[in-house]
Amino acid sequence: MEIKRKLYQACQAYIDLRIATIDKAIVAARDASTDDTKSSAGDKYETTREMMQQEIDRNTVQLNEALKLKQALALIKPDTLSEIVQPGSLVITNNGSFYLSISAGSLNIEGVSYFAVSQASPIGSKLMRLKKGASFQFNDKNYLINEVY
């Protein structure tokens, strides 16, 4: 199904953009750390270096999380079809369409909004292992699964 391939590619682009943004932030923090020169104001240099190191550490944690997302997405086969909801499934409900992959939020493909959710997310865990025609309740809303691709 072509739409699943496009959703998969949108998730890849989401992760790639996240990784690129984090990489730039790490480089900027490293540059700021090495560019600051010692001044007569005492330990300003060491304070700036420490702040930049903390920024690098925070961004490194975010980078590792983004790389984990990339690994999780790599396990999904976008061309696989199943009657039972599993990672990689596109689920059409009466209250929205969900792509079980990674938590990437709302993705707009050909003018239609789809929600990319992980199987570990609250709604993703509700969807897992259900079939067309199944219903469930989430956040005081009733959901009916119209299609599983």
Rank of each mutant, 00 (worst) to 15 (best):
K141T: 02
A10F: 05
Q54C: 10
S33H: 08
A41G: 13
K68Y: 08
N146F: 10
E147Q: 11
Y8A: 00
K4P: 02
S39V: 04
Q9F: 07
A72S: 15
S40M: 09
A120I: 11
K132T: 12
R58K: 14
L127F: 05
L67Q: 11
P122G: 01
E46K: 09
A41R: 15
I15V: 13
I84T: 12
I26M: 06
N139V: 06
I19G: 05
Y114H: 07
A20Y: 08
A10R: 03
A41Y: 10
K68D: 14
P122R: 00
T21H: 14
I84F: 00
Q137P: 05
N108Q: 15
Y8L: 05
Y45T: 07
A28N: 13
L69T: 04
R18P: 04
A66Y: 06
G42Y: 11
V117H: 03
G133T: 05
N108A: 09
F115A: 12
L130P: 02
S97T: 14
E83P: 08
V85Q: 02
K132F: 03
I109A: 08
Q9I: 14
T47C: 09
G111I: 07
L67S: 08
I102P: 03
R58Q: 15
F98E: 04
S118L: 07
T47Q: 14
N108L: 12
G96L: 00
A120C: 08
R49A: 12
M1N: 15
S106P: 06
I22H: 01
L69D: 15
K68I: 11
R5Q: 15
N108D: 11
K4M: 03
A20M: 09
Y8C: 06
L75S: 15
S39C: 08
N146D: 10
V91N: 03
Y8R: 02
K44Q: 10
A10V: 09
V148M: 00
E83Q: 14
N94W: 00
E110Q: 15
S103G: 08
D31E: 14
A13M: 15
I109G: 07
G42K: 10
V112S: 14
K77F: 12
G88V: 05
S39E: 07
I109V: 11
L73N: 04
L107F: 06
T37P: 01
V117A: 04
S125E: 11
I26R: 01
N139S: 11
Y149A: 07
I123F: 02
N142Q: 13
